[in-house]
Design a binder for these strands. Structure first.
Lengths: 159, 159
DNA sequence: TAAGATTGACTTGTCAATCTTT
DNA sequence: AAAGATTGACAAGTCAATCTTA
């Protein structure tokens, strides 16, 4: 598993840094990138997991019998089906998940959380929550949180 | 050049969706992902450029003689040097940039914007600005912009 | 024919090792 | 030795094509 830290920055504006609302956009990007990089770095350092792997564990741990079909899992994690095939390959090698046949349908494959995966997720989730608290929640007061939510909601992808 | 749309979503919380400030964090991620995906999709559809390629063009177009060394460019775009090598390879094939030797130092390579790259950037930058206006700026009023900036500033990566 | 999943070709990114020039 | 860049081996993502089962 690799280690990575990738701020997005620049990509954002286009030297239109003059307009105040455009600057807000840029700031949004920078903060997001820095937060994401930090959470990912911590997760890797302490649990040797990428956030994608963590997300897979998260969704499996919330699923009915800790099992999901490739299809469902791909949708939950928001990744292409073929991309997921590779991820699951490696996570299976790492002993975190297992592939199993599905009773009624011989086309389908179920991915299940192994005990090791279960356990790894539990500690990982504490790392993640702590990260969010430290780098985000703790820096905002109640009012900030409310305002931020309200503003972000206006940016709904609806269009 | 490929087409891609990748919301990050989920990855963010960890079923801690209860806490209001944690939800703000999640929303920040979702909005960022959706905005980024949209800008990238539009740039690809209308100019056949990824935002990374756009960013390369942007930095070259702002550089002194429209030239930067690989080193400097890699830093500006926030990408690894070796990653940039590949990007420049493909952008060179596409005729957008060119590699040139550097006068004083035979180790170094300069990347320059070709006329085609110049031209492509100019239209691309209009696409980009329009996207930011449409999907972001236009949805917020002055006060929102100010508030958002103020809140985001509290999340400074300083630590 | 459709659905479920995998494979193959490709872009993009990382790091460690390498090569050339200072 | 150190700096500038490239190379090679991987991980992660995309899409289009393929294979098997329904």
């Amino acid at each position: 598993v690799t280690a990575k830290v990738k701020p997005a920055e620049e990509v954002i504006d286009g030297s239109l840094a003059a307009d105040p609302r455009a600057r807000a956009w840029r700031l949004l990007f920078e903060r997001h990138a820095s937060l994401f990089a930090r959470l990912e770095a911590e997760m890797r350092a302490e649990q040797d997991l990428s956030l994608t792997w963590y997300d897979v564990l998260l969704h499996l741990s919330e699923a009915p019998r800790n099992r999901l079909r490739m299809n469902e899992l791909a949708e939950a994690v928001v990744i292409s089906k073929s991309g997921l095939t590779g991820i699951v390959d490696r996570m299976e090698s790492a002993g975190l998940v297992a592939r199993e046949p599905v009773a009624g349908d011989r086309r389908a494959v179920q991915v299940s959380l192994t005990p090791a995966g279960q356990e790894r997720f539990e500690t990982a989730s504490q790392v993640h929550r702590r990260g969010i608290r430290e780098h985000f929640s703790d820096r905002l007061d109640e009012a900030d949180g409310e305002m931020l939510m309200a503003i972000l909601k206006k940016l709904a992808p609806a269009s």
